[in-house]
Design a binder for these strands. Structure first.
Lengths: 117, 117
DNA sequence: ACCGATATGTAAGATTATCTTACATCCACA
DNA sequence: TGTGGATGTAAGATAATCTTACATATCGGT
């Protein structure tokens, strides 16, 4: 595998985060419904961590999942005033309407670039 | 399993994010060194997603991992991750399409205020 | 409506990863 | 030195994932 490095890096942050939280592998394993050796292997980078587990780890250690996977916390810059207006409008929509809109958006965009991308 | 719901939710966001990005499962599979059926099963919530994969998905779809796992978005002007997605899509629209959309939004919102809630 | 092309869902055996238990090692401290 | 807690690791049992193949949509053009 190629993202072995990435995995190792995640593993290292998980281990460090656990230590900083003052928890033992056993305590963590219990909270996560895992066996202790699994936690050990995860921290060694020998086992993958599922997305759900990652989320659970983040909660237990009180860190962000973004940190655990090595991402910088991201911010979306919406600098077009018209988009800000649109965003405000979007926030007023019901979830259901938002759903419809999101689907409509894909169609609209397809019409815009016509084959590009 | 207990986090089945969490998994399904992650799967749903992955699917939605892919669609908004305009990519097919096949294209995604290729970029991630996966077979297409794996992507299909992941989006159906039948397969776990590893932390590395999650990170890769986030990069391809241009969304945050925090959004994908359902965490509260980290300090954004627009606090609904789905809106961030929509906003990004809006930026890709032509001015003309954006105009139409803004008008459509008003109509949608009018519909919301009536029966629902 | 029909067609071909592309996208997606799904089945089944082969393959690989993970689990579970047990034992080994390390380290702090009395 | 020796005891207890924490962690690493091995090995067979178990479970998930892969890979290939086929089935079912879905969409655009005719």
């Amino acid at each position: 595998m190629e993202d072995q490095d990435h995995r190792k890096a995640i593993a290292a942050r998980l281990k460090e985060a656990r230590r900083l939280s003052g928890l033992s592998q056993g305590q963590v394993a219990q909270q996560m419904n895992l066996h202790r050796p699994s936690v050990s292997e995860i921290e060694a980078g020998n086992r993958r961590v599922s997305a759900e587990e990652l989320s659970h780890f983040a909660k237990i250690y009180d860190v962000s999942v973004a940190y655990l996977v090595g991402d910088a916390p991201d911010t979306l810059a919406v600098n077009d005033p018209r988009l800000q207006l649109a965003a405000r409008e979007l926030q007023k929509l019901s979830p259901d309407s938002l759903n419809k809109l999101l689907k409509a958006l894909a169609a609209l965009r397809a019409g815009d670039d016509e084959g590009a991308n």
